[in-house]
Design a protein around this nucleic acid. Structure first.
Lengths: 207, 207
DNA sequence: GCATACATACCAACTAGTCGGTACTGTTCG
DNA sequence: CGAACAGTACCGACTAGTTGGTATGTATGC
């Protein structure tokens, strides 16, 4: 792993995370990124074939960065799988504070702007979101098995739902320009998961 | 109400809803909007002082359009307030189909791109989202009173949470480029609300 | 000497916004 | 009545600045 001083490529990727989270993909110019990274345009197009290619690389970089954060987070330490899921939700809530640009999701922001126009970016964002969701499925499945729950929903669908709540919470936080409303939605999510696993036989069915 | 043939202003606002939902705010150019509306640039800047001003007007137009849609929707007809809330959620799910650009939310998309750079747009989007959420609060409060529920959450917070789930569901739908995943999140939301009002004394507390 | 990693100068296309002008719709006044 | 006037809606060529991307040069390490 060559990590002497950060190369132009690494600086550009880090700058992309910060800048695109704050301004969005379309409004972020190549010059913005070069200025934020402290490199020149030549360096940019030496490492990335296009602005679109940088966005794909940034989504992958985001997956790696956040993947490492969650892999090392303490919520995995609980013995009970349901406790791990609930602690994951708490952990997500604990990350919410300060400026929305600092705690919201790069790929959720990017996919909104690009899904119709840049399929490659959309796919990279989808891979990031659902790849992360997949890390929850085993714990959810184990918790269901533990408690003998037979439901009309799957671990995959509940994992996806947690990401929907988080992404939606980020939008509300941006609209309100503060984290409080997002934290409240995360509380609702925790309450939902708690109720799901409390309710005997999962008698709550939906149409 | 002068509604002979649609004026340039109306055509531009309608074009803005469609185009910005598909491409985002920053990637939508004034020329795009003029072409989609079939008017010239002169007409655009005759009616709107700037692109930003159009976005604010478009958010307001969105509020009116969707406000009328929901005001006239059949979910209000249920006698029981909880049934009204659940029918609202079903109604939201029933709107999800086809291309994401056709059923996702303009203001949720716009606020993501603009919250840090265009405060006026952010405020218009926030007003739209939370104004809509507020239309649910009375039914939720009534349902709580009906069932004697004393909870550590408020009607306002549950109403906001429904919007978070919907906004997040839209993001997942865009990432997957299809409505199915969003519909599943809406089912989870309905299950949550059902469980909340089934659980006696709302014994599920969160930290 | 040769690939990699940058830097500098540059360009064609596009961008939001401007500006002088036209067409139409009433209103006023002789 | 009808001519003069006024206000609004709209047109489309234009511009100054920005955009993503390119062409070319150079420094460094193997």
């Amino acid at each position: 792993m060559p990590r002497s001083r950060p190369s132009a490529k690494e600086k550009l990727l880090d700058a992309a995370l910060a800048t695109i989270r704050a301004k969005g993909y379309s409004a972020t110019t190549v010059d913005d990124l070069c200025a934020a990274a402290g490199v020149t345009k030549g360096a940019f197009f030496h490492h990335f074939a296009s602005k679109e290619a940088l966005a794909v690389a940034a989504a992958d970089h985001w997956s790696e960065t956040t993947g490492a954060l969650f892999a090392g987070a303490p919520y995995h330490d609980h013995a009970d799988p349901l406790d791990r899921v609930l602690a994951y939700i708490d952990f997500r809530g604990s990350l919410m504070g300060g400026d929305p640009a600092a705690f919201t999701c790069l790929v959720g922001t990017m996919v909104q702007e690009t899904y119709g126009s840049f399929p490659a970016i959309r796919e990279a964002c989808a891979a990031s979101i659902f790849g992360h969701a997949a890390t929850l499925e085993a714990d959810i499945a184990e918790a269901m098995a533990d408690r003998g729950i037979e439901a009309d929903w799957t671990p995959q669908s509940l994992a996806a739902h947690t990401q929907a709540v988080l992404q939606g919470a980020f939008i509300l936080a941006k609209a309100k320009d503060g984290p409080q409303i997002a934290i409240e939605s995360v509380r609702h999510l925790k309450r939902y998961v708690t109720l799901l696993f409390e309710t005997p036989q999962s008698k709550a069915q939906t149409s």
